[in-house]
Amino acid sequence: MALTVELALQLLQIGMVVAIAPLIMGITRKVRARLLRRRGPPLVQPYLDLWKLMHKEVVVAPNASWVYRRAPYVVFAATWVAAGLVPTYATGLLFSWSADLIAVIALLGTARFALALAGMDVGTAFGGLGSSREMMIASLAEPAMLLISFAVALIAGTTQLSAIAALFSTGDVGVRVSLGLALLALIVVGIAENARIPIDNPATHLELTMVHEAMILEYSGRHLAMIEAAAQLKLVLYFSLVACLFAPFGMAVGGDQSALALGIGIVTFLGKLAVFAVLLPIAETTVAKMRVFRYPAFVGSAFAAAALAVFLRFVSRGF
């Protein structure tokens, strides 16, 4: 019986992230449009887009291989599993121990690997360009992300996200220099990994500046829907990572599975996501897109900040 409840709670989290991901994307698009003095699409537009794409016919190039056809599902599955294992409304869920922070980062790496291969499959100039640049950005962003996880893990004494969230939500850890640096780095990495301005422009097409869009240029129909859904899930994943590491209040901790605690957990989680979804486009509209070879400085700053945070922790427990 207890196992059934635990399983249901875990499945609720896995289902919830995939259900709300398009909505979160809708909020960011709406806010961005309003800031640019446009009316913007309705909040549910991403759902409608996904629905439309899924019912369309897929157009595949004659020389596309099975890698091209399977990759969208692999990307979606890997991102979904990673997102479903980041604590959202409660800690200590049934499968929370199966992947720690490092494994979640690596799962995103699996998704990226599949997508970059798919970009190269048909053999177009744009696909190769996108894959090549994506891997360049990743080669800076992924180590930064790992260093962030080091910094957090050194404070919490564990790499388990659930345990970290439970510890941080008690407030005993307090405000720390290294945590501040890690947060800064995480935001930069999140921007780079989610292909947002100033690294990449999710609204762009037919431009030489694009990265993510260039990789998926040939995709259509249900394949494109899967990739879009994965991108939305990834945004939710990064939002819930920030929420779980740096704003873990309201979560149901310590195995508290009363309806009230869970309800508060879900409501505060959704609230946090909504706040982040508003803040992201505000930050985005204040900066301009960078040139490609300025990225290393930008993402490298995240690497440096995270490395500094780790160093501080190695030097003294006080930071």
Binding site: M54, H55, K56, E57, V58, V59, V60, A61, P62, N63, V122, G123, T124, A125, F126, L206, L217, E218, G221, R222, A225, M226
Partner: peptide, 17 residues
Amino acid sequence: VHRLASRSTRTSPIWDC
């Protein structure tokens, strides 16, 4: 996706923008 949405596939030359 294949059952409830669409499973039709068409082969067509590379688009490449």
